[in-house]
Design a protein around this nucleic acid. Structure first.
Lengths: 161, 161
DNA sequence: GGCAAATAATTAGTACACTAATGATTGTGA
DNA sequence: TCACAATCATTAGTGTACTAATTATTTGCC
């Protein structure tokens, strides 16, 4: 190895080595993001399963616990999801009895999504979820908070332009 | 507001406010992770489209450019994906002509996935992708590298236990 | 007032991503 | 050696998540 370079192996600066780095899986931010997101969501799976929720459904419930009723479009903006993604997801949550879907009185195009008493009551059980996840990850609240802030910067960078 | 507290509004430490924070969408690391991952992958979509690749398919190609042939299980470990996810994905890449799938001679249970000349040649075009993404994000290489390192720590925390 | 443009949600189609079950091959111990 | 467990990949089923097309309603403009 390193036959084309007079530098030591640990500093191979040939064009081939540079392009290896550029396309190395372990160097890709997108790969780290995808794997970390799937991994963390996987931690929620067994925790949410007793509540009958998937992770995207849990996020919808979080949004509704903050404000209800909300329209599909409003939820989509809060969650950064397409209406086409939310539409069937909300029907499943309605079938579970956690929310109602009905056309807005003021604008018949819009759909008002509102919590049912069961959906509202679920919040009490949800309060135990974040601590369970933090405990399972074994990371400090400082580390997690800082990570969240950096990820928020990435989200803003994506939206920029 | 803040009727139960003698503290100023900006430091509402009632139980209700604390539980609001705990379940607030914007405080969840999992939400930031999910949105950031979807957003960054969305940046790749128009860039990869001319190559006929989705983002997960791109990651498979990155893995194969580092080593080929590899088995499905080996790819799954590198990409942290279930074999059941890779199976149809690899068939699509085979249909595109970027790789071949054939049973291993040493172990008929295993499938050897190998790059075709077309798959190997695609690497040249892929070299321009990372710079395009970095440019579109408008973040420094330092920021991105540090983020990747922190995400790698999260991935290790998930695998821990 | 009426019609074109804009807006809201849904549907269709494609592609992940997971769990559970299946089928085929290999390895192992009595 | 031969039953039996372990391993590898695939299939089936469910649930996101996207784009594009469709339907229904509202708004804007003459």
């Amino acid at each position: 190895m390193n036959a084309r370079s007079a530098l030591p192996d640990t500093a191979d600066t040939t064009a081939a080595a540079a392009s290896d780095d550029l396309l190395a899986l372990e160097n890709q931010v997108c790969f780290a993001l995808a794997v970390a997101a799937r991994g963390v969501i996987g931690i929620y799976r067994p925790i949410l399963e007793p509540l009958g929720l998937t992770h995207p459904q849990y996020l919808v419930m979080l949004a509704l616990w903050q404000r209800s009723p909300r329209t599909v479009r409003d939820l989509g903006e809060a969650l950064q999801l397409e209406p086409a993604t939310l539409s069937p997801l909300l029907k499943r949550l309605e079938a579970q009895g956690y929310l109602t879907r009905e056309r807005s009185a003021r604008d018949e195009r819009a759909l008002d999504v509102a919590l049912t008493p069961a959906g509202q009551a679920l919040r009490e059980q949800a309060l135990t979820i974040p601590p369970q996840v933090v405990d399972r990850l074994g990371m400090s609240l400082d580390e997690l908070g800082s990570l969240r802030d950096r990820l928020t910067e990435v989200i803003e960078a994506v939206q920029h332009d």
